[in-house]
């Protein structure tokens, strides 16, 4: 994923050609599951990204209002195209802008700046560590402030230049780098709104599966820990069950590999690990996987689990409901802090 230091580097190549999806956006090597995170809107209210954008096309972008080029251009071009779209299609699209410069992007400034493009655009703020964790979970290089020797207030923030487009099936298959023109947006946004970018299976199952499942539970970002360059790892999930309770039956890495549910016990002797067919989550309770407890073992992954990368996973829960989540690969040294961050972003309902 490209990182741009605003006004220094730009993704020159516009996505002018159509991919196998028929979209002009740049196809991702592997589909990206919609992350689950909660940040603060410019009006001060919490915004649960996964829940608020459920069943909608979500255009997610990380930037800042003082950005001299990439951010205002992306927002202006998307707004210009949305303004010309019919209401039914436009209503199916959410634009979410997460600031990477919360110090200067006050809620007032962020809100006013976004409203200048489109009052419907959602501006989100969060603690820098949380925003960093979200970017990492999406495989983005986290934004970084570029020091300015002349002024502590006037600085640039290097940040990913692409807009990630999650389809209505909660999976991103394309991103839109800097250089994407209005013509490209006008081609792709109606297609995304009409689910033409979704896989046939996902589009067909949308109403009966994923939308229902997320409403009934909350899932924090998944964390995968792995040794250096290993194709094996341990996955930790945090799931808040709804009022009916829930059961986790299976985890399937979308790009290939094997996942198995495990329970570790350490009572009266050394830690032992045994596989289990399912994990029950009582009504209203929290399943918080952690080292030495319940976890998921990943094996025979098609690619080495490189820290910083993300792996889309499909969870099979009660009544055959399936949810796609994104797992971020971290090192053992990072595990505790990243797990804490992931849970900090988690708001049980």
């Amino acid at each position: 994923m490209a990182l741009t230091a605003c006004s220094e580097q730009r993704d020159a190549a516009a996505a002018r050609t159509t991919s196998v999806t028929g979209l002009r956006g740049t196809p991702l090597d592997e589909p990206l599951a919609k992350p689950s995170f909660v940040l603060t809107r410019t009006d001060g209210h919490a915004y649960d990204f996964a829940r608020e954008t459920q069943g909608k096309v979500a255009l997610l972008f990380f930037g800042y209002t003082y950005c001299p080029d990439v951010c205002p251009l992306h927002m202006a071009n998307i707004a210009a195209v949305l303004a010309r779209m019919p209401w039914e299609e436009r209503e199916a699209i959410r634009v979410v802008f997460v600031t990477t410069d919360p110090e200067r992007d006050t809620p007032e400034r962020l809100g006013t700046w976004l409203a200048g493009f489109d009052p419907e655009f959602v501006g989100l703020r969060g603690a820098p560590d949380t925003v960093t964790a979200i970017q990492k979970s999406l495989g983005l290089v986290p934004a970084s402030r570029q020091p300015n020797a002349d002024s502590s207030k006037e600085y640039l923030v290097g940040h990913a230049a692409q807009v990630i487009a999650f389809g209505r099936d909660n999976v991103a298959r394309v991103v839109y780098p800097f250089g994407t023109r209005q013509d490209d947006w006008a081609h792709d946004l109606p297609m995304l709104a009409r689910r033409e970018g979704d896989t046939p299976a996902a589009a067909a199952h949308h109403d009966t599966q994923s939308s229902v499942s997320v409403l009934e539970r909350a899932i924090a970002p998944a964390v995968i820990v792995s040794g250096t360059d290993s194709a094996r790892g341990a996955l930790y999930l945090t799931i808040q069950a709804g009022p009916m309770g829930d059961t986790l039956y299976a985890v399937t890495p979308i790009g290939g590999g094997v996942a198995s549910l495990h329970v570790s016990t350490a009572s009266a002797g050394p830690v032992t690990m045994k596989s289990t067919r399912s994990i029950a989550i009582p009504a209203g309770s929290l399943l918080a996987m952690q080292p030495g407890g319940v976890h998921v073992m990943l094996d025979s992954m098609p690619r080495r689990l490189v820290p910083g990368s993300s792996i889309p996973l499909e969870l099979e829960l009660s009544a055959g409901k399936k949810v796609i989540v994104s797992g971020t690969v971290v090192t053992y040294a990072e595990l505790d802090s990243v797990l804490a961050l992931a849970r900090a972003a988690f708001v049980p309902r």
Binding site: S7, A14, P68, D69, P72, L73, A76, R181, Q182
Partner: peptide
């Protein structure tokens, strides 16, 4: 269209 914007003028 892709030039860094100047003021509030849209492309």
């Amino acid at each position: 269209e892709l030039a860094p914007p100047i003021g509030a003028l849209t492309s």
